[in-house]
Computed example of a mutant assay.
Amino acid sequence: MLHALLIAALLVVKPTCTEAFGDMNICYVLDGILILYGIILTVLYCRLRMVPSNKTPANLPEKQPAAGGIYAVRPLILMIKKTLKKAHEGKVTA
């Protein structure tokens, strides 16, 4: 149903070739606006990336890396293994 409706809409709206070639000036104006928009966005993006950001909130503490970094999980696993081994031997009670 939707597919047939879409085809019918395209057949009704379909412009002829002479209509499309008649308004080429509009295409040039729109291309110029699009190019100008792209240049402005590029300049703004480059300014954003090049200017160092020194706006840090004074009330928030800086993040400190976890002890051991990405390897901090290994000591935790070893501690759990030791605890489980002691529990298996009966030295640790809950």
Rank of each mutant, 00 (worst) to 15 (best):
A4L: 14
L5N: 13
L5S: 13
L5E: 14
L5F: 09
I7V: 14
L10S: 15
L10R: 13
L11M: 13
L11K: 14
V12C: 06
V12I: 14
V13C: 08
V13S: 11
K14G: 08
C17F: 15
C17T: 13
T18A: 12
E19Y: 11
A20M: 15
F21Q: 13
F21K: 12
F21N: 11
F21W: 13
F21D: 11
D23Y: 12
M24T: 12
M24S: 15
M24F: 13
M24K: 14
N25H: 09
N25E: 12
I26A: 15
Y28I: 14
Y28M: 14
V29R: 11
V29C: 06
L30D: 09
L30Q: 13
L30H: 09
G32Q: 03
I33F: 13
I33L: 15
L34W: 08
I35W: 07
I35P: 02
L36M: 08
L36C: 09
Y37F: 10
Y37W: 09
Y37V: 05
Y37G: 04
Y37C: 07
G38R: 08
I40G: 00
I40Q: 00
T42F: 01
T42C: 01
T42Y: 00
T42N: 01
V43R: 07
V43F: 11
Y45W: 01
Y45T: 00
C46S: 05
R47L: 11
R47Q: 06
R49C: 05
R49I: 03
R49D: 01
M50K: 11
V51M: 03
P57M: 06
A58H: 05
N59E: 08
L60D: 01
L60Y: 05
P61F: 03
P61L: 04
P61T: 02
E62D: 07
E62Q: 07
E62Y: 04
E62S: 07
K63Y: 05
K63E: 10
Q64E: 04
P65L: 11
P65V: 05
P65G: 04
A66Q: 04
A67C: 03
A67Q: 07
A67N: 05
G68M: 04
G68C: 06
G68Y: 03
G69C: 04
G69F: 02
I70A: 11
A72S: 03
A72K: 02
